[in-house]
Design a protein around this nucleic acid. Structure first.
Lengths: 375, 375
DNA sequence: CTGAAAGCGCTAACAC
DNA sequence: GTGTTAGCGCTTTCAG
């Protein structure tokens, strides 16, 4: 019951406290024989080092913390898996927490992780209008799927590329009139629109119409817009709808069907953000997913760089004695951004005779039949 | 850059260190006015309490740790969500880690969590032949989906009930020849088989055949078995396949279709473990989910009881002075087990004319069209 | 209510 | 190589 501590191990093994500590943290400094004895004793006594004390005393830690807004949305699971694998490759382990879109919880988790002195943190903030990175992090932080004006390290989805990819898919499906629905003026979404415009500008034969309406997370808005577009006269009616979010797309499909048309026969529909939770509609949805796995992976890479950059200068402080100078400004560029490229998930909502030509676009490593394989 | 600590806050606010500490941990002991001043100062300075120091000094912690073997399988996600919600209800937050079926990592994570002094832990061990709970945990632990002979607290799935439920469903679908695929001799899976046998023994008119083959997590194995069974002669061919895992079931469906038969028309197929990640196949899968959500929820309930039981006696030690006695043996029954009942998810892979009668079995709280709702 | 002082268990110097 | 010692930042006594 009484917790066994390092001194107990030392006494039981007949060595001194410092030796046990060394055996744990600098095994090379201890005679193999002694080390084995100590290890044996540790096992017998069931000793578990107190991490708090360890960190407090200046020890190091191979833990990377990851805070996500949710687990059941977007590419969270892929992020985790990418981060986990990359972390392991560098000798770190991952622990994580979900803020559940609760800003207080998010704050609390962040403070806990930072206070708990892990090596670094990956943090995907809850989407909010005016988000900014933390001013003075006590550990290196990499922000995922977010972007700040100030200094910091960010890994973001390439939203323009998402738009381009979907637009090109529309073109290759033989679309003549493309309608874009969703708040086209809003931050991230507007980049998707830019990508769409850019891509379709090389197809002068395709008419593009941008309806700047519909909240990205309200499928009812998509329903209304889908219905509305379906009721237009033949020549005015789009044959391809790009929704700026998958939720909107799912709504639009329902709206089109409610109006008596069918998808993809009358109108093709595509989403734009690879949100698995919007995929359960009647028609499986073509969309364009940011590579969550890549995001996690790159996040950890960035983070590890930062962690190691932070350790270097400290070491030199000690060694150089009084000739201390801080090269921090060079190690720590004010702002680092990594972009992650998306890939196309072609499914029934845009499939048709004309679509077969584009099947080469489909990403081979993402079998649509098994979401599990791509987590 | 230099980390701001409690003494900095105290000086900036013009109070003493102890007062800041009190404002943080026992707000009621500090004059509201002073408290506000301190809070303000904390915000300005961006002070983050050092959790390590805090814990070391005997502080408490509202964190519950959860270690899972994987994230992309079984009911992990539901466990998390159940645990998260229940934890929040009791004022705890959840942090978790995935061992990735790597026993060393699992051990490391456990040690970290225990060493980090969180309030308690939920732990779903990597399935292994002869698993036993940790001998001397330094924090309360509840084991999930595992069971030990010795003392400890466990929440387990009722695997026999899962088997029974699926078998009964098969019977109510009018099955005549039922084939079971999967490693029927393996631990947990064998219980499912027991349940199936038990249930079908009351239906002497139904033939049961158990093919003890196919890894539970290899959909290719299911494919092969599905194909193989499809090629049998009419009388030998089963009309209902129960796969001991959903992944296997999904593979089997693909195999059956590859062999030119259709599901559910020619052969009905059901899974057995409610694995959402196996549900994206061409035909939606009937399965029997252990209530992962319940498991997470009950786990946290148990854990919270244990945490609080552990705090009580300590408090009385202090108050009773020398009349110390340890009622631990009564608070801490050697072994506690909670069982979680499964429910049937009836979907297209077993649906047919005859199946409508059983639709009452379908769990109303789990809409099949929106996986998100039940994560 | 406030301030001073005693550790919590450990690591990383430092002498031996 | 080994043993000794000074804190790490905080909470919690205990006197004012």
């Amino acid at each position: 019951m009484a917790k066994v501590k390092i001194i107990d191990v030392a006494r039981a093994a007949g060595v001194s406290l410092g030796t046990v500590s060394n055996a744990l943290n600098h095994p090379e400094k201890v005679r193999p024989e002694t080390r084995r004895l100590i290890e044996e004793t540790i096992r017998e006594l069931g000793y578990t080092p107190n991490q708090s004390a360890r960190m407090l005393a200046g020890g190091h830690n191979n833990m990377i913390g990851l805070v996500l807004p949710q687990l059941n949305h977007g590419f969270c699971l892929q992020i985790i898996s990418g981060a986990q694998n990359e972390a392991q490759k560098h000798g770190y382990s991952l622990i994580f927490a979900v803020s559940g879109r609760d800003e207080d919880l998010e704050e609390q988790l962040l403070r806990h992780f930072m206070g708990t002195q892990l090596a670094g943190m990956l943090f995907q903030p809850i989407p909010r209008p005016a988000w900014t990175p933390r001013p003075n992090p006590t550990v290196p932080i990499v922000y995922l799927d977010a972007e700040g004006p100030d200094e910091g390290a960010f890994v973001t989805a390439d939203n323009e590329a998402q738009g381009r990819l979907i637009a090109e898919h529309a073109a290759s499906c033989g679309a003549r009139r493309v309608a874009v629905i969703g708040c086209a003026h809003e931050g991230v979404l507007s980049r998707r629109v830019t990508g769409i415009r850019e891509s379709l500008s090389t197809h002068p034969d395709i008419e593009l119409e941008v309806l700047d309406a519909g909240e990205w997370d309200v499928s009812g808005d998509g329903f209304g817009l889908g219905q509305q577009l379906s009721r237009r006269d033949g020549a005015e009616r789009p044959d391809f709808i790009i929704a700026l979010s998958d939720v909107l797309a799912t709504g639009a499909i329902a709206g089109i069907r409610a109006a008596g048309l069918s998808v993809p026969e009358d109108i093709r529909v595509a989403g734009c953000d690879g949100n698995p939770l919007a995929w359960s509609g009647a028609v499986s949805l073509t969309t364009c997913a940011p590579a969550g796995y890549e995001m996690g992976r790159k996040g950890v890479q960035l983070l590890v760089e930062m962690i190691e950059a932070e350790q270097e200068p400290q070491a030199s402080h000690v060694r150089l004695g009084n000739r201390v100078q801080s090269p921090r400004t060079e190690d720590h560029p004010a702002r680092r951004i990594e972009t992650v490229r998306p890939f196309l998930l072609e499914r029934a909502s845009t499939r048709g005779a004309a679509a077969t030509t584009s099947s080469a676009h489909r990403s081979p490593q993402v079998p649509e039949t098994n979401l599990g394989a791509y987590l």
